[in-house]
Design a protein around this nucleic acid. Structure first.
Lengths: 217, 217
DNA sequence: ATCAGTTTGTTAAATAATTACCAATAAAAA
DNA sequence: TTTTTATTGGTAATTATTTAACAAACTGAT
């Protein structure tokens, strides 16, 4: 049974998926047990950090043995809520929306794509992976009918806030936002941003810096 | 002239693009000056943090006045290296690769897409935004010829490491990695990961947690 | 059983990041 | 010009995160 600590830091939470990914790889390789030290070596973390992180949720290991790989993997899946399903829709069915619709990572995260929406009449009616693109005016009704609780925003930044307003108006619980803007939503709505341009700018910064450092040598 | 501090923390660096984005918005709105307090209110940061962050790179403000919006925007663009151009190729021309190719965020970050590569013969020959998809065997030669220094990996995780090896073999400087795996590269190569599945799992965690918290009320 | 060797969970120490504070100084008002 | 007000840049205090240390406890071998 998990410890009930609700004040886990985001730093810890953002490491959990990486733990999960590597544990999955280990399971596939047939590794049954692992120590925090060896796991840390693989991940590039300190053993201490791994033990500290895992202990936020419970004592999954055993002295003199380490962690059972499969058991730990399942515990983390449980902590991440990957066993629960969430019905999702994509709003904005352009290139990015379509790529996300085809994204295989949905499998295994518990998210199920139920519909796609766009304002562009050329896109409405097209199907991506058996998901029909619908007109955005049908969205509210669809959310109710299909029990949607996650909205994925793949619109340009101009339309994003309005889409967010419509989604939250329908009591959606979470938004996965790919639009390059910060959304203003009620405090009980969760927003996870994927800001590609920011990621790219960080890359630009690091390249630029590296270059400057070399010039100064 | 910038201060020369090379030990800027990643926490600061990852905030720079957000500063840049909001400053651009302010320029567009015609705002000419702003105090750290007002800027913080808009961004959701403390005034202290903004002043502290900016001071890593230089004293861009003025007592009793604040910061000149346009000037600060340009300074940050310069710090981020957005004025320099970098030639990039996309490896993996599936849905995600094509979406990235169409991604308008390249404009304004200084990255120029010069080519796309795939192993799938059905894709080779197709053009996306005037960029021809080539066979991956032509990649090495193309990198030399077209002076490419950035590789964007949009392959499944299975092929990603091999692509990274080929890219670094050609002395590429940086990789923008969308494959759900951590790449092993020489230490002078910069890797910026966009791990969508990890982002999605964090979303799952937060939703799951919110639900648990509500149940315990 | 007993014992040597591992490895955890947990507490303490060290490091990093954020926030508060304030003297110095420029802008704006008087 | 002088005074008041605003606001920075930098330093100090606080808070958060990471790493180190170690007693407790399990494994596996003898």
């Amino acid at each position: 049974m998990e410890k009930m600590r609700s004040n886990i830091s985001m730093a810890v939470i953002r490491r959990l998926p990486k733990y999960y990914r590597y544990l999955n790889d280990l399971v596939e390789k047939g590794v049954t047990r692992i120590s925090s030290m060896e796991f840390g070596r693989i991940l590039g973390f300190t053993a201490s950090q791994i033990r500290q992180d895992l202990n936020c949720f419970g004592g999954f290991g055993q002295q003199g043995y380490g962690y059972n790989v499969e058991e730990l993997r399942d515990e983390i899946a449980n902590i991440l809520g990957l066993n629960k399903t969430n019905n999702a829709i994509i709003v904005g069915a352009g290139n990015l929306g379509q790529a996300i619709a085809n994204y295989s990572g949905f499998r295994g995260s518990g998210f199920i794509l139920k519909g796609m929406f766009d304002i562009n009449p050329r896109l409405v009616g097209i199907s991506i992976r058996d998901i029909k693109i619908m007109d955005i005016d049908e969205m509210s009704e669809f959310i109710k009918k299909a029990d949607i609780n996650v909205g994925i925003i793949c619109t340009p930044k101009e339309g994003a806030q309005e889409v967010a307003d419509r989604l939250t108006g329908e009591r959606i619980k979470a938004i996965w936002n790919f639009a390059p803007t910060d959304l203003d939503v009620p405090e009980d709505v969760i927003v996870e941003n994927v800001h590609l341009s920011e990621s790219l700018m960080v890359l630009a910064y690091l390249m630029n810096q590296r270059e400057n450092a070399e010039d100064n040598k």
